[in-house]
Design a protein around this nucleic acid. Sequence first.
DNA 1: GAAGCGTTTTGGATCGATCCAAATGCGACT
DNA 2: AGTCGCATTTGGATCGATCCAAAACGCTTC
Lengths: 347, 347
Amino acid sequence: MPQSGKHVTLKDLAAHAGVSRSTVSLVLQESPLVARHTRERVMAAARALGYVYNRGAATLRSARTATIGVVVHDIANPFFGAMVAGIDETLQNADYVSFLAGTGDSPARQQRLVQRLREQRIDALLLCPAENTPDALINTINTWGLPCIEVMRHVGEMPRGHYVGADIRTGLGRAVAHLVDQGHHRIALLTGAGHSSSDRERIAGYQHAMHEAGLAPDIRTGRNELTRCAGLERTLEIMRETSPPTALICHNDLMALGALLALARLNLTPGVDCAVIGIDDSDEAALSEPALCSLATHPHAIGQAAAELALACIAAPDSAPRRIVLDTSLRIRASADPSLYRLQESS
Amino acid sequence: MPQSGKHVTLKDLAAHAGVSRSTVSLVLQESPLVARHTRERVMAAARALGYVYNRGAATLRSARTATIGVVVHDIANPFFGAMVAGIDETLQNADYVSFLAGTGDSPARQQRLVQRLREQRIDALLLCPAENTPDALINTINTWGLPCIEVMRHVGEMPRGHYVGADIRTGLGRAVAHLVDQGHHRIALLTGAGHSSSDRERIAGYQHAMHEAGLAPDIRTGRNELTRCAGLERTLEIMRETSPPTALICHNDLMALGALLALARLNLTPGVDCAVIGIDDSDEAALSEPALCSLATHPHAIGQAAAELALACIAAPDSAPRRIVLDTSLRIRASADPSLYRLQESS
DNA sequence: GAAGCGTTTTGGATCGATCCAAATGCGACT
DNA sequence: AGTCGCATTTGGATCGATCCAAAACGCTTC
């Protein structure tokens, strides 16, 4: 059926269906103005000729691309994998399609990418900004009139535009409260170098929670590595101190899993000798040995929310900045609750 | 600096620089035809007016979008995360940008996505096809003249067009050989339902390797779940048999890690009572307890190779189908080699 | 049969770039 | 001075859709 000749255009359709180009255009836009039988004739022609809508051409006139850009700092990170899946799901339902690109935390590459995407005339941008992104970037994007939603991270102390993230602060409150319930007093926070907004958020939330509980904060910033390996090494160091903490809250699940490994190597029992709580509740958490207690951040839901906000911004530009902060939930498991220890055995 | 008025077009640039539109166009395409001082004047005008190239408009005339589509069946899968990172890296160097979308293994959604991307006039398509993709799809895409590269999976018995994947077959040969070296005879393969081409590839490679070694194959297909959980449950079942295998090769690392958990629950020592080998060599593998022996498939490199092939296809359309099969390497670790057991302790 | 009115349809201009054949400028050579 | 060659530059047509104001149509109503 498909023509092997050149491209079939709307003009060809018009000729084949015996109507004008304008009418065909209306049909393609599903306009209610056109009579039912005309629509059907045009649709039939489209099928017969193997017509393919040319979105680029439409864009040129109408300035809508049905396209959004997603820029994250680390594509390979499973958290972003899940987030991107959420974004994709929502966008597909709206018949949007998205560009995905990674910056590897380089502001320069980020700058180039944003420019590149602007040339593609994306309708909106979901940005999980690289560290040390200059404040100017967000302003610049705003002056372009390009709706931009910061996700998970934000440049500057407070998000200045639209923002979607997880309520780490309250979540850390829950984590600390749980540990206090379990009788812990020496609760340490293991995090990155403290430069990224995700570090700062964790530190602030932790400090607040510790203060509420009347405990002295014990913040262990590390290098910027947030990997299993970093968690392992850092924990080995810490647990060899003379009076080490009895509970560790880690920047993410990877580090927490590393911490569990470290405890195992030192022949300490996680959850008994030292409680460990991660952040993200990734797939690994529930299935590690022992199961890792983790603060669930729901990346999929965050992705969905961000995509929905983007669509809303496109529909109503220049709406007031919205800040969507999704609730987190503490998944209590053996690594921070000895009473659950090995219960799963019976499965 | 940026104009707050309407859009700055190439025509405005021409006026500002005192040359014709054609000349400006040549400058933007970095054509060598234009005199140096003219180029500089135009560039200066572009900066002064805050000009943004409109790729959509250019596309309309020149039929090149500098855009490719990436369609995978499971976006959230870390393997694809790494692969997409490789693709992205290569494309960014070529100043291409990519659409990413997931099918969730639904041929219908895949069909819609491919159509949608075609409307965007992508220059090439990287496709990791959904299971049960109709053979017709690849043919159809080919008649469209859209360069398509199948990645990791392929529809039909053999890839009919361009293909990039990992040489699982030879890799499994190495895995089996290693296990035989270690004195194993009852070596089982744990895989999915056997419907996807990745299942079939593993089964074929395993059968071949076992045959070479003069051993009887023992294939344990499961449901389609390829998760840690599936690996755990399946292994619990298998190891409770009267004479269970002494070595398990698992469909991927997730399942293998699940298998390790199962062994731990049964108080069996992985690598001693039962060897376990995974496939992918994901980050988790090296750091699990015990370290997981795994067949590295290098998703990042596969992504790069696929993207490079795509660029090559764009440069030279209708070139003969190429099949790039990247080598794998067996990462021998404690889970399949007791002599390495707990050596890492000393780290 | 003309006027009035709501529903459909239409032609031409337009979006912002590229392509191409032809024009221009300029120095060298006869 | 006239001609040729080379490096630059140019106008107009074009890509494939949308937008808009106006035309055509069909029906009632006077």
